[in-house]
Simulated assay, not measured.
Amino acid sequence: MEYDYLREHALHALLISDPKTKANYIKQLHQQGPWQVGADLAIQEPSQGVPGRPQKPDIVPPQQVKQRSLNTPEGRATLLHALAHIEFNAINLALDIIWRYADMPDAFYGDWLCVAYEEVLHFELLNQRLKTMGYVYGDFPAHDGLWDMAERTKHDLVARLALVPRTLEARGLDACPVVRAKLAQAGDEDSAAILDIILRDEVGHVALGNKWYHWICLQKDLDAVLLYPDLAEQYRAPRLRGPFNLPARRAAGFQPEELDYLEKQAQLKN
């Protein structure tokens, strides 16, 4: 592999558009480590191609992504495709946080490489399941809410940690059990089993978001709990609605006062 430092490799992987090629590159990175991190490198952002994407799926506004009944094979495939797109975005998000932000401890970059690797495994599980149903990733439109927030926060690591892993990705902790139950009720135990794996791993991913958010707030003498509402307002984060998977959120490191804030926000009227 032609680069000397992990952060250079992460940017290269981020720019790869073919999902299979991207996945294989990340697996090699994960398996061939430990790498020199290059935490002090000043890496220039490419003028285009961030992140690398396949030609399909078509990216559309969220309201144009249709929801179908899970009682039909196509409806379940549509749901699994949406989840695969989330996982593909999550791969890119982990790569982006590695290359974009300099001067963090080596453990920061190693943690997010592990996240990228596990997101690859999730994506492959979902895409393989789609193939058994006669579909592949790219067959349905998708929206880009996760990456939109990454773009908004790209100049502020504190905001990125607060609003991507701890907010948007943490929604998966709440949604996974609900979606899993619906798939099981529809008789799709194979797909439901994939959701079990994803939830298990996503607790750890959100926990890393919490870990590094609180770490960097401590370094900057910021109150992590009091800062969060200001960041959510400044960067137009969606207000999360319950019910919340409180056991999973506690396992992921959310503090009691943070969970109280979530519950109060969910009760507010539009």
Rank of each mutant, 00 (worst) to 15 (best):
A175Q: 14
F88L: 08
D96Q: 14
L126R: 03
K182R: 14
V158M: 14
K182W: 00
D139N: 15
L121C: 07
F123T: 05
D103Q: 15
A184M: 12
D188P: 09
C176R: 06
L157P: 03
Q128K: 12
L161Y: 00
C176S: 14
D139R: 11
A90I: 04
F108W: 11
V164M: 10
L173R: 04
Q128Y: 02
A186E: 01
W112K: 04
D188G: 03
F123E: 04
F140H: 11
T132D: 10
M149R: 09
E119G: 01
E151N: 15
D156L: 11
Q185T: 15
K131Q: 15
A184G: 15
V115L: 02
D111L: 03
M149A: 10
K131H: 15
P105V: 09
Y109T: 07
M133W: 10
L146N: 09
D106G: 06
V136N: 12
I86P: 03
A116L: 00
L183N: 00
W147V: 11
F88E: 07
I98S: 03
G145A: 12
D96I: 04
F140R: 11
D144S: 13
K154H: 13
S191K: 07
L173K: 06
D148R: 15
V158F: 11
I97P: 01
H85R: 06
D190F: 11
A192W: 06
G187L: 00
L163Y: 10
H122N: 07
L157Q: 10
G138L: 08
H85C: 03
E189I: 15
G187S: 01
H85G: 10
Q185W: 05
C114Q: 14
G110C: 13
L163A: 03
V158C: 13
G110V: 10
V136C: 13
I91A: 02
M149P: 04
L113M: 01
F108N: 06
G187M: 05
F108Q: 04
R171L: 15
P165A: 01
A192R: 02
D190M: 14
A159R: 08
F108L: 08
H85M: 04
L161S: 05
I98C: 12
L126D: 05
E87F: 04
T153L: 02
Y137T: 01
Q128T: 14
A142H: 02
D148W: 13
L95R: 00
P105Y: 04
L157R: 11
T132V: 11
C114V: 11
A107K: 08
A90R: 00
N127Q: 11
G172Y: 00
H85E: 04
S191P: 08
P105I: 04
I86Y: 02
